[in-house]
Amino acid sequence: MTWIAMALLLLAAALAQSLFPPVAWLGHVKWPWLLSVTLYYAMRRERKTLLVAAMAGGLLQDALCHSPLGFSPLLFLAVGWPASACKSLVMTETAPTAAAFGSILTGVFVLVGGLWLHVTGAASVSAAGWLGKALGSALLGAVCTPSICSAAGSLDMLLGNIKRKDDIHGAY
């Protein structure tokens, strides 16, 4: 059931990310729903599920976007990994922690991704636009990640993938 829940979450997130318009005053950034799903699996589930979520989510993002295929899976893995490594040190089931993780890691994702796209010539963004996008993404990540964590946690509990909120850490 974990994989069914993951597939549902990823598809819904991809649809939402595609349909939600970019936020102009935050540097025209898109809502990072797919990355938030990956971060949910990084913070609250075992590492194996993180790897699959990062690969599937990243591939979905690249296939529906204009970036090179394989670009997002690698970056999703790169930002999901520290979150997964740190989860035993912090209370990942609380909304503020999810917001902090979401904000920092989404910002890092956009910084590194923007640099990659600029170096490979895939996108031309000014330094100010690049930093603006990173800050805007960080703000949206702080909103998206707790929302996704709450929704995905409820779905996982509904499907019996995790028993109670207290047991989330025990789902290794």
Binding site: Q17, S18, H28, K30, C65, H66, G114, K133
Partner: peptide
Amino acid sequence: VVSRGGMGGWW
């Protein structure tokens, strides 16, 4: 128009 800005907002 069904979507704007793709998935990443870079373009």
